[in-house]
């Protein structure tokens, strides 16, 4: 299969999990579809009602299961449907980065991005940038053990 021209440099083996807020960020996902803005298919999106609903356990689970990177797609703070969701997501982002650092997992494998309402172009761009970034870091140090567990 040939890759689209703009994604020649993307490693499609990179496994990314994206948590998306149901409101602004997910409208970005829909608009990207409507406007045919392509982004790499490496990203498996999980829709949540608000990024404030996430917790460390969910992000760590993604890494435990072999994700090379996790991207949190949220909303600008002033647009949050639950007032404090974005602030909570930022706190969680900081905490998770600290845990990843302790574990020796590159902190750049985690990103938090704010997607304003309906910005499909921005979403596609941010996701592609993240996939490239993680691709450059390489596969997760946990992946060999995940494979071993799968084969056992």
């Amino acid at each position: 299969m040939t890759k689209p021209k703009e994604y020649q440099d993307i490693d499609f083996e990179t496994r990314i999990v994206g948590f998306v807020c149901n409101w602004d960020a997910y409208s970005g996902v829909e608009m990207a579809g409507v406007n045919r803005k392509e982004y790499p298919t490496n990203v498996k999106l999980v829709k949540v009602m608000c990024l404030g609903r996430l917790h460390l356990g969910l992000i760590l689970k993604a890494f435990e299961l072999g994700a090379d990177g996790v991207i949190l797609l949220g909303c600008p703070p002033e647009d949050c449907h639950y007032e404090s969701g974005t602030a909570m997501a930022k706190e969680l982002f900081t905490q998770t980065k600290k845990v990843l650092n302790l574990l020796g997992i590159d902190q750049n494998r985690l990103a938090l991005v704010e997607v304003p309402l309906g910005r499909g172009d921005l979403l596609a761009k941010q996701v592609s940038t993240f996939v490239r970034r993680v691709g450059r870091i390489g596969s997760s140090p946990l992946q060999s053990s995940v494979e071993a567990a799968r084969l056992a």
């Binding site: 460390l56 760590l60 650092n101 946990l142 053990s145």
Partner: peptide
């Protein structure tokens, strides 16, 4: 039933990885 969203269980599972290079002595 895991407490703390299973974060501690995940941590323990992650630590079983053979090639881990922790920064735990800060």
């Amino acid at each position: 039933q895991c407490t703390h969203g299973g974060a501690l269980q995940s941590l323990m599972h992650i630590m079983t990885a053979a090639h881990l290079n922790q920064n735990r002595l800060g």
